[in-house]
């Protein structure tokens, strides 16, 4: 991996994580530079979500280093971790909206609880943010359960960008959506990342999503990054694992065990 001249926004080195006897991450090295969108691809169960959760502090790695702006974050106290998380915005696979709160309070959650804005001002900011993801003010008072999957993803994106974070994370942003809605979400993600000038770390196995939102792609296989390069080069990576994955072929070096009853 080539070392960039400036300090990366996120630097991951030799990251290990196991669950019991199952080793999921076995020495991951990855850099995400300032204002760069990196997408980690890989098959189901290869540890993409685990990698993202380690970066977000939801899971504790056993070994290795995660630095954000040059500061080690794997050993922070709860309070210090919360301060670091103020730089982050995260869109979850299932949107993870709080169903006890209306849409606007979901979007304004960070503004209300972290920035301690007044409710009127926070609501106004939430409505403005909803507009940025293509949702009208009439959605603000609805409950998350009243929204379609695509609208929930938009609200999740609005919540992620409401505090204008420096780092955005996306976990399978298009899973469960029809191709048109998925493309809309991809466009919104790409636009939001550009507009905020944020660094972005996404995980997905949707190649349409990769081509739309990535500046750089890294492939995770058997707990390690086996290829890392600009998205433009992914079709000529020369890596048989990457080739098999991006073309979705059953034949190739990546073998999946299929048990037939």
């Amino acid at each position: 991996m080539t070392e960039p001249a400036s300090q990366p926004k996120i630097r991951i080195r030799d990251l290990h994580k196991s669950f019991g006897a199952k080793r999921v991450l076995a020495g991951v090295d990855l850099d995400i530079n300032d204002a760069e969108s990196v997408v980690v691809i890989g098959g189901s169960g290869t540890g993409k979500s685990v990698l993202l959760k380690c970066v977000l502090g939801i899971l504790q790695p056993e070994r290795g280093s995660i630095q954000i702006d040059g500061r080690e974050v794997t050993n922070l106290s709860r309070g210090e971790r919360q301060k670091v998380m103020q730089q982050f915005g995260m869109l979850f696979q299932g949107a993870a909206l709080f169903d006890s709160l209306p849409v606007w309070e979901n979007v304004a959650f960070g503004l209300l609880q972290v920035d301690r804005l007044g409710r009127d001002e926070a609501k106004q900011r939430a409505i403005e943010t909803l507009a940025r993801v293509g949702l009208g003010p009439e959605v603000a008072e609805l409950s998350p359960a009243e929204l379609s999957g695509g609208m929930q993803k938009r609200v999740g994106l609005a919540r992620a960008i409401a505090r204008r974070p420096e780092i955005l994370c996306f976990d399978e942003p298009t899973t469960g959506l029809d191709p048109i809605t998925a493309d809309v979400i991809n466009e919104l993600i790409a636009h939001s990342v550009r507009e905020l000038g944020a660094s972005a770390l996404s995980i997905t196995h949707d190649m349409a999503s990769v081509r739309k939102i990535a500046d750089r792609v890294a492939m995770l296989y058997q707990g390690k990054i086996i290829w890392d390069g600009p998205v433009k080069e992914i079709d000529r990576s020369g890596n048989p694992y990457v080739d098999q994955f991006i073309h979705g072929r059953a034949e190739g070096p990546i073998q999946q065990t299929v048990k037939v009853a």
């Binding site: 977000l56 919360q82 998380m85 299932g94 709080f98 006890s100 609880q113 972290v114």
Partner: peptide
């Protein structure tokens, strides 16, 4: 049931990413 559903739908993880301690909130 409410907190369990929040756990399995990643709402508790979402709280953490929004700099909010689930124990406090």
């Amino acid at each position: 049931a409410e907190i369990g559903t929040m756990r399995v739908t990643e709402q508790i993880d979402a709280l953490t990413t929004l700099s909010t301690d689930p124990y406090k909130y």
